[in-house]
């Protein structure tokens, strides 16, 4: 169970990205965070694994205080939280295999990394992860030779290598076309259901939200303006919708 209490983030330049955000995520939930770009979705996700340091507030996860963890404890927490990025964040010049294996770095002694060494079972696990996302034949290719959809699968495989208990997905399909978007989110949904893994995902498109979310949080200017399950989203009135997306927003999908 992930508990976020009174989370506030103010960047060095004075931008107030999050204001007093509090919510709880139960294990096995597929939580979708919606909101316009700049509404604080990315900051919220990055505060959970402290890629961005929260200014105020507390984040606890299964009884552990993430906000109070020191560097080594933080690394232990991070390796149990997989993360998927909008721009995939692969090392383009490295092979797919190396990119997937790098998901295992939290479990690898740092000295081994000097000679690029991984455990044998990690290599087996990496192939399994690639099979699970459907691209085992690309293991030897360079990451930048792959298409966008394939690169995001590598990103998912890298997250799976961490054997995470939770996955944070920051706009995982924003750089992909709708068909690929469904395929990537389908992958995430399968992982969510098969492994009972918590997924926290930020999304743009309302129809994707309705299709995949088990619960939804709406952010606007760093404040939670909506909370409900996918049913609630379906019955969302235009007024509520505009409250989340701003006055000029038009409804696009279902």
């Amino acid at each position: 169970m992930l508990q976020i209490e009174n989370l506030t983030k103010i960047y060095d330049d004075g931008t107030q990205a999050l204001t007093d955000v509090s919510f709880t995520v139960e294990e096995g939930e597929f939580l979708v965070v919606i909101g316009l770009s700049g509404s604080g979705k990315s900051t919220l996700l990055r505060c959970i694994n402290r890629l961005v340091e929260p200014t105020e507030g507390r984040i606890t996860w299964n009884g552990r205080d993430i906000t109070a963890a020191d560097q080594s404890e933080l690394r232990e927490i991070r390796r149990e939280i997989g993360m998927i990025f909008q721009h995939f964040n692969l090392v383009k010049r490295s092979t797919v295999m190396t990119n997937v294996l790098s998901g295992r770095l939290g479990y690898t002694p740092p000295a081994w990394s000097l000679i690029n060494r991984f455990r044998k079972e990690d290599r087996v696990r990496a192939m399994q992860a690639l099979e699970r996302v459907g691209i085992p034949d690309k293991a030897g290719n360079r990451a930048d030779e792959l298409s966008g959809g394939q690169q995001q699968r590598v990103g998912i495989a890298r997250a799976l290598m961490q054997e995470p208990k939770m996955i944070l997905a920051d706009e995982p399909v924003a750089s992909l076309d709708p068909v690929l978007a469904h395929s990537i989110l389908g992958n995430l949904e399968r992982i969510n259901q098969e492994d009972n893994m918590t997924v926290i995902c930020s999304l743009h498109f309302l129809d994707l939200v309705q299709r995949y979310a088990s619960r939804v949080i709406g952010l606007r200017d760093g404040v939670i303006v909506f909370e409900g399950d996918s049913q609630d989203i379906r019955q969302l009135s235009d007024e509520r919708f505009k409250e989340i997306y701003g006055e000029e927003a038009e409804r696009l999908g279902g």
Binding site: E76, G82, R104, G106
Partner: peptide, 22 residues
């Protein structure tokens, strides 16, 4: 590109590993 750095940090890699892999 800062993306891969962020990704390696998110997997729990330490500073040395971030430098070597990202």
């Amino acid at each position: 590109d800062p993306g891969p750095l962020e990704a390696i940090q998110a997997t729990g890699g330490n500073r040395l590993q971030t430098i070597i892999y990202a």
